[in-house]
Simulated assay, not measured.
Amino acid sequence: MRVMAEDEATRIAEQHAQAVIKVIAPAQKPDPGGSGSAPCEGRGGEIAKDGRYYVQHIYQVPVSPDRQIATLERLRDHWRQAGYEIQRFRVFPDGKGGEVAARNAQDGYQISVETTDPPTAVSLAVYSPCLMPPGKVSG
């Protein structure tokens, strides 16, 4: 398991978020929805008690209703070219909304973008992999 201080993990999450914003809406000012850390969960839902954690960053990025699906497609294509693993891409049955999610294989961060209802923005979420803070021993 990678060892990393929380402030460094947060800085990397912010870099990923800003890179996505630059691709999908460089002229827009995103609304930060929040960020923070939480203990990692095991496969059975158990909470790590040894200090393992992940960080998340969430934003609402203004995107006009007529550009929602095209924005997801552009981001998916950009991630493919950058070598990210596309985990999900779908357009909802109404044809007006959808989502795309990818994982950066180099650092394990996951990024997802989903249209909002009403369709005035997209919700951007960045999650770090499970990390161990410095000075802790995984057990």
Rank of each mutant, 00 (worst) to 15 (best):
residue 94 D to F: 00
residue 86 I to C: 00
residue 24 I to H: 15
residue 116 T to Y: 11
residue 14 E to R: 12
residue 80 R to S: 15
residue 100 V to N: 00
residue 37 S to M: 06
residue 104 N to T: 02
residue 42 G to N: 07
residue 62 P to R: 02
residue 45 G to Y: 02
residue 116 T to P: 14
residue 25 A to C: 05
residue 55 V to E: 07
residue 24 I to A: 00
residue 57 H to K: 09
residue 80 R to H: 04
residue 85 E to W: 04
residue 22 K to R: 10
residue 36 G to C: 01
residue 25 A to F: 06
residue 100 V to G: 03
residue 76 R to C: 04
residue 60 Q to M: 13
residue 82 A to P: 02
residue 117 D to C: 08
residue 48 A to K: 13
residue 100 V to T: 01
residue 84 Y to A: 10
residue 38 A to P: 11
residue 98 G to N: 00
residue 66 D to F: 10
residue 79 W to L: 07
residue 13 A to S: 09
residue 41 E to C: 01
residue 81 Q to C: 06
residue 112 S to P: 00
residue 47 I to D: 13
residue 17 A to Y: 11
residue 35 S to T: 11
residue 108 G to I: 01
residue 114 E to V: 12
residue 19 A to C: 09
residue 63 V to E: 11
residue 57 H to I: 10
residue 114 E to I: 08
residue 68 Q to W: 03
residue 96 K to I: 01
residue 46 E to T: 06
residue 115 T to C: 07
residue 72 L to W: 11
residue 46 E to G: 08
residue 36 G to R: 07
residue 63 V to Y: 09
residue 91 V to L: 02
residue 115 T to F: 08
residue 28 Q to Y: 00
residue 81 Q to Y: 10
residue 110 Q to D: 12
residue 42 G to Q: 07
residue 43 R to E: 14
residue 62 P to Y: 03
residue 71 T to Y: 10
residue 108 G to H: 02
residue 94 D to M: 04
residue 54 Y to R: 15
